[in-house]
Design a binder for these strands. Structure first.
Lengths: 222, 222, 222, 222
DNA sequence: AATGAATGAGAATTCATTCAT
DNA sequence: GATGAATGAATTCTCATTCAT
């Protein structure tokens, strides 16, 4: 579970650049935060728990982050860049847009299964840091939408679709499917599934394919 | 904003049946809680704020509810029954299933616009009371699914759809659309819209209609 | 060491009027605060120490005061009204203004000896609550000045004196004399004096009398 | 604002003599401390702020001073020697003792106007380092008193005055006048006065002159 | 000499819950 | 039924000081 930063100019809470040792400590705090937030949610998590998990003293936290909220925001942003990375990687092998959507969801679900923090943390962000939450969704939706727009231009999906609305709908669909079939699902021994049930993924992909496909017959769009 | 209980045998925290005066107090507490939770979210809300809003003394709260969590759960359940009522009412006028889905969403969005608490409160429930959250979603999804199953039997929607997966996807899609276009949207004066933008609703309905429509007669496409 | 309030409409931190029990608790907190601030100064004092001294729980403090600063301000104001009371009582028996000034100082020193908090607390107020400090000094100075003005009108003290400047000078003189000869003075056993050394008081009174006395001779000026 | 030390054998916290570079660093720390303490008071000041202001690293502080309290004491002592220097310089031109007192006050006020730190810092010393505070006052008072004693011997001031008490009284009077008319006074633009209002100085000098002047015999004054 | 990361005790403050009236 | 004073555990955050580099 490495934190690969979108934010290479890593700096402390006071804005100073960090020494190597400092960067290492900051990284440990972020990883601990991911774990703790994922396990307990934002409100049950505490800075004490994060620092204990990270193996540093309480005061050390404040060398790197201003507050619980600020590490939370850093984490959401980090997770966001990782999930998008995971999705675009998954979509790379697609031969057409509709297939790409399916693969994108697969990447999304894979990331979710491996990082349940994403869900928990993001959904709690609504009250904690609405702007960050918005940013998170918008970034994903923007990516979706760009793909849908391109596909529309190429005639691979129906021209009449409102790509923005569709992108938000797909985002929401994916989120709830992930919650239902990954976070809530338990096998016989009460363990969460390592990956999403292929049947569910197929059902989801089929649903999307049907919604997106261009209107039949001789001449398609508009 | 009346609380019309699904739970008519209203009783106090101690399990005793309530006098008329008691029922009135309980109702005022629930209404205050809806307001306060909607405004502040679960964690920022406090029992003092709820009782102040309700115009009763702090101690009175505990005559009616065991804890902060318990009034929260009561509220989620109440809201759930109200939103489902709102949706089925909206769907009543439909002439076919696909139209019904669109109308159902309209009802859902209308309720959301009028009761933003639903969103906020429900999404926070994940950590506060996961079982209640599950129950909330499952109740709605079950309704959806029953409709989809019936429609499938009647050939009004595609037979190959996995109705359970579709129901969860639609639930998620509706939730995020509502969040994006109702809760986050602001007009020029910074006021939230009273109802959802018809274009968005149309986009959403079209999206769903495309996804659900049966495959064209003689030869299914693709 | 009773707190006799200038502020009879005693109310809690939230502004509500208090029950009898509440008033009693508030009083105990103020008395404890006087003790603790006097012993330790503002910064070393802590709310825990105050509540322990008062024999109430930590949280109880916040039912009555917003913050450490707010109880401090309440205390300064209370002490101010008490010291002025003590001074005017002492001056009551005087047959002329110059004698009154001497007796006023005596009252001031007596109060200081009995309530060392006044000094300590007031002098620390400069950074903690400058407005309160100003108010404290101004109230005393205003009293002084009014007396001096009246005496001037009656020809009991020199007409050429700038009564405002003199009032501030006397206030400062009294303060430092009190500090030096009451707070810092220790007898053979290391105990503070119960009252000021009469010789010092005489020296001080003489000094003031000389400064204030009207210019000699036949006809007082103006 | 140079720190001209009374303590030429400057040494580090460990007692070692300092190199030239070390002396420079120490000086910068003291100057920064004067600024920071003056602006924020003792408790709000922090070592980080002092080192940042001085442009050195945090750890460097402890090469030169044992603790926050120790730099504070060094500063009080430095300020004390400077204010006394300023006063004796001002008194140098006097032709008699009573005039000298007036000029001394003028010097005191001038220093105060230029170095508001003196006040703020000294008055906070009561709890932080009582011994240092005592020392500060005693040094000034001793100077005063020596002058008064000499004047008494020469018959320039009244023989019956208790010079020690008078010296303390004058010290206190000067302090409060300075606080009131320099530190609290603000012109129309909210800026502090660069020097004391001449009318106040005259009022103060007159007050002192009256108090000190020898008793008439046949006809002394004016 | 200088640096700055790390420490951890201690401070203020909040709030769900209890209970005597 | 209703009240509201009291509780105290838990939380966030600060900062003087230490020490390895």
């Amino acid at each position: 579970m490495t934190i690969h930063a979108d934010t290479p100019p890593v700096s402390s809470a006071t804005g100073r650049p960090l020494t190597k040792r400092g960067q290492e400590t900051r990284r440990r705090l972020l990883e601990a935060a991911e774990q703790v937030f994922a396990d307990l949610g934002y409100h049950e998590a505490s800075i004490v728990k994060i620092t204990e998990h990270a193996g540093v003293a309480l005061g050390t936290f404040y060398l790197y982050f201003d507050s619980k909220q600020s590490i939370f925001e850093a984490l959401v942003i980090d997770l966001n860049s990782r999930v998008r990375h995971s999705m675009s990687e998954a979509m790379a092998g697609a031969t057409n847009r509709i297939e790409a959507e399916g693969l994108g969801f697969e990447g999304f679900f894979r990331f979710t299964a491996e990082h349940p923090a994403l869900y928990r943390v993001v959904r709690e962000a609504e009250f904690v840091s609405p702007a960050t939450l918005k940013l998170h969704y918008e970034r994903i939706v923007d990516g979706y939408r760009a793909g849908l727009d391109a596909a529309q231009r190429d005639g691979e999906i129906a021209a009449e679709l409102d790509t923005e609305v569709v992108a938000w709908a797909l985002m929401g669909a994916g989120e709830l499917i992930g919650m239902r079939y990954l976070l809530w699902e338990r096998d016989a021994e009460g363990r969460p599934p390592a990956k999403i049930d292929p049947a569910v993924l197929a059902g989801m992909s089929g649903f999307i394919a049907r919604a997106l496909r261009p209107d039949t017959t001789e001449g398609t769009d508009r």
